[in-house]
Simulated scan of single mutants.
Amino acid sequence: MSGSERIRLLEEAAGRADKWIEFRRDLHRYPELSFEEAETAAKVRRELDRLGIPYRSGVGGHGIVAELNGAESGPTIALRADMDALPIQEESGAPFASERPGVMHACGHDAHTAILLGAAELLASRRPARGSIRLLFQSAEEINAGAKAMIAEGALDGVDEIYGLHNLPTLPAGLVATRRGALMGSVDRLELTLTGRGGHGAIPNETIDPIVCASALVMGLQTAVSRELSPFEPAVVTIGSLQAGHANNVIPHRAELTGTVRAFDPAVQAKLPGIIKRLVEGIAYGYRCQADLRYMEQVPVLVNHDAQAAFVEAATDALIGRERRVEAAPTMAGEDFSVYLKHVPGCFFWLGSGPRQGAENAYGLHHPQYTLNEECIPLGAALLASLALDRLNHI
């Protein structure tokens, strides 16, 4: 795209911003959990119908695959947005706050959906001369299941490259953060049942106490990172829930634990299941408990492809200037966009969604008081649209 074309794209995005902000607010008011996004998907379909963009619905749950085809055959560039909300009670105080108790768009997927629809509208009047732009509206990112379900139903068939973004409230709106190579951690889940022998709390010698065993396991599992991995191989083992017993004077028969395991290197992710299994079985044996460990690999490390990351950098710099792009810090937070990147080259990047001043003190993702600076919506739409057009012109 020429410089004048980019200026017109930004101006058009700004001129249409109110409509997409209102769309986002409607989604925010009526959030839906993973694999329950029926109303959200229906609203997306109505907008695609209005724009005259063909699509396939019900892909991988409530996912939608839309296609903008050029006059001639050529490569296919995919752009992805997620649509699901979280089981969080909203405390933002926004006038369009969630009206569904215990459900909130605390990660900004409502904005991601609006951004991709905004990009679709910008692209509808700039259809490529060759190739295709595929728009993926995805279910169930929050439970790390949607991308796999979309891929299983052909969402990536024929795709040459894929791009996606995520808002970041600790980065000021108007900025973009990119990183080559590993950007986000892998995500695995563990579930553990410890079975002992219950009894009276006053006679512990006649029992096998699974709570004591569980307590030892919570501490012992930390050595999987601190004493079995190099200090230069970051990883996290977190036990997030421990359920056992109901009475203060009763030693329960069993304890249930769940946790998350993160790594920043695929080789480290591959090591951790064996380490954790050995620690669980050894500690449980020492405390005379039976251990049933279920270890589920969910998503891999999100590793951007260098060439595609360079394309995002170039498109960002051309659209908004090099001074508004920063290097993204690595994070152990996970994203199932990583699954797409295992199949096709692509890049995932951060779009600033925080206040212009003091973004570093903003409430982060998944917080009940999370808010989004809606200035990011037209910029995100323009950036995705220009990136897709640039790639089709250069592949």
Score class of each variant (00 low, 15 high):
Gly196Trp: 02
Gly181Ala: 06
Asp265Met: 10
Asp306Ile: 14
Ile275Thr: 06
Leu9Ala: 12
Ala94Cys: 15
Arg24Cys: 12
Pro172Lys: 08
Arg50Gln: 14
Ala314Cys: 13
Leu79Trp: 13
Asp317Tyr: 06
Val344Pro: 10
Gly70Arg: 12
His109Thr: 10
Leu192Tyr: 00
Ala17Ser: 14
Phe35Pro: 03
Glu72Ala: 14
Tyr55Phe: 15
Arg322Asn: 08
Leu302Gly: 07
Ser353Thr: 09
Gly52Met: 13
Asn205Pro: 00
Ile208Pro: 01
His28Glu: 10
Pro266Val: 13
Pro231Asn: 12
Gly158Met: 08
Ala267Cys: 10
Gly274Cys: 11
Ser34Tyr: 05
Gly93Lys: 14
Ala284Phe: 02
Asn304Cys: 14
Asp49Lys: 12
Asp306Met: 04
Glu228Tyr: 10
Ala145Pro: 02
Arg50Gly: 10
His28Met: 02
Met1Thr: 14
Cys107Phe: 04
Leu257Phe: 05
Leu379Gln: 03
Ala291Asn: 10
Ile208Cys: 07
Glu233Tyr: 11
Asp82Met: 00
Leu389Ala: 10
Leu116Asp: 04
Ser226Trp: 01
Asp292Phe: 03
Asn167His: 00
Tyr285Thr: 15
Thr207Ile: 02
Leu257Glu: 12
Glu206Phe: 03
Tyr363Gly: 05
Cys213Gly: 06
Gly63Phe: 06
Ala333Asn: 10
Thr258Ile: 09
Leu27Lys: 00
Leu168Cys: 11
Val326Ala: 08
Met104Ile: 03
Asn248Lys: 13
Val103Ala: 06
Glu36Ala: 12
Val299Arg: 01
Ser2Thr: 13
His105Pro: 08
Glu141Leu: 04
Gln357Phe: 04
Gln357Asp: 15
Thr258Gly: 07
His253Ser: 14
Asp82Val: 07
Ala149Lys: 08
Pro101Leu: 04
Leu136Gly: 05
Glu39Lys: 15
Cys213Leu: 04
Pro210Phe: 12
Gly131Trp: 06
Asp82His: 10
Val212Lys: 00
Ser338Glu: 09
Pro172His: 11
Gly3Cys: 01
Val187Lys: 03
Leu190Cys: 03
Ala17Thr: 00
Lys271His: 05
Pro31Lys: 01
Ser241Thr: 14
Ala224Arg: 06
Ala41Asp: 05
Pro210Asn: 13
Thr223Val: 11
Ala97Phe: 04
Tyr370Thr: 09
Leu387Pro: 02
Pro368His: 10
Tyr363Pro: 07
Ser73Met: 04
Ala114Phe: 10
Thr76Cys: 12
Leu319Gly: 03
Pro252Ser: 06
His246Gln: 08
Arg254Tyr: 13
Pro95Asp: 09
Glu39Ser: 13
Val103Ile: 11
Leu10Met: 15
Gly61Arg: 01
His28Ser: 07
His62Gln: 03
Glu206Tyr: 03
Gly58Phe: 07
Gly352Met: 07
His343Asp: 11
Asp82Cys: 02
Gln269Pro: 04
Gly201Ser: 09
Pro378Gln: 04
Gln369Ser: 15
Ala267Ser: 05
Ala307Met: 13
